[in-house]
Design a binder for these strands. Structure first.
Lengths: 196, 196
DNA sequence: CTAGGGTGTTACCGGTCTGTAACTATGCAG
DNA sequence: CTGCATAGTTACAGACCGGTAACACCCTAG
């Protein structure tokens, strides 16, 4: 019953929003199009008038997620204009917050785990969007004056990604509980090192 | 066609082995019991004589995976008897090897992503087995004389876990390519630090 | 008032899913 | 040879899946 996002907006938006929520909670293969349209207060025909297939709906959901993530980066810049180091610490705090939000991990990673066909359209956009996120973090580290910016960014990426799946498997009392300490320690360590 | 593990052994073993392989490649919800039994050279009735449901088969597959992982730890001890630090480095090498093996990530994590019902029997064993692995790595770090053994073990865990999902989403040329460097750097760093 | 696009409704298609029933074939122990 | 456990076969139940056809409805633009 927590799936009923039935505000009065255009059916396409309701479907997209509802699908995002249900895919996130129950997994992609765990939700049928009938369940989505019902929770969105509409019907299957309307869904197929706006999306040519379930696969396309999945792709649009992933893109919508990425757009929301993009807004996060703009919020960092708005909160600490020009202070890239502060923005990096804000990223750490935001990441830690997301860890404790719910135990359902990253939608992109979950989708990649479920959609195993190598040619599935979703796999392309997952790769594209993950690479964009990586590029943003690398840029942030570099602009913050970190010596080995790529290495720090990649290490933080893997830590965060790992923390998300750890929450999903053993809960938030597992290794992920130390995420902030690990991340902050890494930043300190990389700031102390000379540029290569 | 690569799914045909039809050696002549007892049907139960063939089913288990085939199911492990197919769940790993195609995901749990991506494989039906019919496909498993056919690839195992048997039939559905025989499966249901040995496993009371698909869920139980899933659980047995996860346990079998964990048993194989357990053998890995014994191999470390056999190769470097008593030399815990060498075993820790062996773990890093083994982890890196697994990253490049195939891009399908960790079966436990994938199962947790797919099986979203909080009371699903598989979730219990996933948590149990992941906690056992964590304990082993913590013990190894402590016995290797590392100061903050838990913190190093958890950091390495998250790095590895993150690297596996990274391979699954962006491939092995992404952040995970630096896994060994990150892990070795961490070990050096923790070895240099004083015990708390 | 009217025309038409967006929407809702119902029913349906062919396929797949987990799980079961009833029966047959095989192989081995006594 | 007999008896019995194990395994294979066929068919089926009941539900759900993604996707489509045909038609009725309503709201708004002209």
């Amino acid at each position: 019953m927590t799936d009923g996002v039935v505000e009065r907006s255009r059916p396409r938006d309701r479907i997209l929003e509802t699908a995002r929520d249900m895919f996130h909670k129950h997994g992609i293969k765990g939700v049928g199009v009938d369940a989505i349209t019902e929770a969105a207060g509409t019907n299957k025909m309307t869904l197929y008038r706006h999306f040519e297939s379930k696969d396309e709906l999945i792709v649009e959901c992933l893109r919508a997620n990425a757009a929301k993530a993009g807004a996060m980066w703009e919020a960092f810049e708005a909160e600490f204009p020009g202070d890239k180091l502060a923005q990096l610490h804000a990223w750490v705090r935001k990441a830690a917050f997301m860890l404790n939000a719910d135990g359902r991990g990253c939608d992109m990673a979950n989708a990649a785990a479920e959609l195993t066909e190598p040619e599935h359209p979703a796999r392309l956009v997952i790769k594209e969007l993950k690479e964009a996120q990586r590029a943003r973090l690398v840029t942030l580290c570099r602009d913050a004056g970190i010596g080995q910016a790529e290495l720090l960014a990649d290490t933080l990426s893997l830590l965060f990604e790992g923390a998300r799946v750890s929450v999903q498997t053993v809960g938030s009392e597992g290794p992920s509980a130390q995420f902030v300490r690990m991340a902050e320690g890494l930043i300190v360590s990389f700031r102390g090192a000379a540029a290569s």
